[in-house]
Nucleic acid binder design. Structure first.
Lengths: 124, 124
DNA sequence: GCGACTCACTTTCAAAATTAAAGTGACTAT
DNA sequence: ATAGTCACTTTAATTTTGAAAGTGAGTCGC
C-alpha cells in the first residue's frame, strides 16, 4: 500500500492504477520480468516492441519507486544490474492475464500460458 | 473480434490491448459508461478527473471505431448524442474490476461494488 | 427580437511525453 | 591501441496532452 492521495488524480482505484501503470510501456516491462526471463537492461530493451532506452530507464525507476521492481548488482567494475519483480510486483500477474485474455478475444493477439511458457493460441 | 484494421506493435495480446486502451483516460470513460450512468458528453466530462473536451471527443471516436461504444441521437435540432457501451464494450468489465482490485489493494483507492452501486471500501 | 444560456463539440497553442539517434563511462577482449 | 559490451544519459524532432477559448444549432426569458 503506497502513500498519500495528493499524488493521484482521484480516489478511484482505477484512476490511481492508470496514474502509475497507464501508458503503453510499463506493463510490457512487467510482462517481460514476470514471464519472459528478461532481467537486464539490454534484455528488456531487446523485446520485440522496442522500447527506447530513456523510456526503459524511466519506467524502471518508476517501478522501483513504487516497490514493484527491485534491482541488484550482479557484477561490480563496472556495476551491472539485474531487475526483478518484488512480491508486490508479482501481484500484477492476474491483471496481466486479464489484459491478455481480453486482447486475445477482441484484438486477436496471442495467448501465452505461464504454466508451460508457451503461446497456446496464435495471433492474427 | 476486431480485425487487424489497425496495425499493432506486436502480436502480443498485452501490447495490442495497450495500443488501444493504454493511456490515462480511455478506461475512465469506459468506467463511467459501465457503472456510473454517464452517457452524454457533458456527463462524461464532468467526472472528477476532468478530462479535457478534445481528449474526450477523441477517445469516444476511438472507442466507437473499435466497436466498444456506440452512440445514438436522443434529440434532433440540435442533434444530441447518448453514448453507451456495446456488448463488446461491456466485456471490459472484468478487466475494470481487476484494475480496481489491484489499485485498491496497492494504491489505497476506493472499492466500488457494481452490484450495489456503492463504494464499499473508502480510499485513503 | 435580443441577449443569455445549453450542449457538443472543434480549434488553438503551450507544455509535456515519446521517439530515434548519438554520446558517455567503465570496463573486457584481441 | 582498437574495438566491443553494457547500462545508461543526452539531444533534438515529433507527437500527444492539457487548458482555454471559440463555434454552431438551438432554447428560454423578457
Amino acid at each position: 500500500m503506497t502513500q498519500p492521495q495528493t499524488k493521484y488524480r482521484s480516489r478511484c482505484s482505477i484512476a490511481r492504477t492508470l496514474d502509475v501503470l497507464g501508458d503503453k510501456w510499463t506493463l510490457l516491462v512487467v510482462r517481460d520480468l514476470m514471464w519472459h526471463g528478461k532481467h537486464t537492461f539490454q534484455e528488456l530493451q531487446a523485446s520485440e516492441e522496442h522500447i527506447a532506452a530513456n523510456l526503459l530507464s524511466e519506467r524502471l525507476k518508476r517501478l522501483m519507486a513504487l516497490g514493484l521492481v527491485a534491482r541488484e548488482a550482479y557484477q561490480d567494475r563496472p556495476v551491472r544490474y539485474r531487475y526483478a519483480l518484488t512480491e508486490e510486483g508479482r501481484s500484477l500477474e492476474a491483471l496481466l492475464l486479464q489484459i491478455m485474455g481480453w486482447g486475445h478475444a477482441h484484438l486477436g493477439g496471442g495467448l501465452y500460458d505461464p504454466q508451460t511458457g508457451r503461446t497456446v493460441a496464435e495471433a492474427d
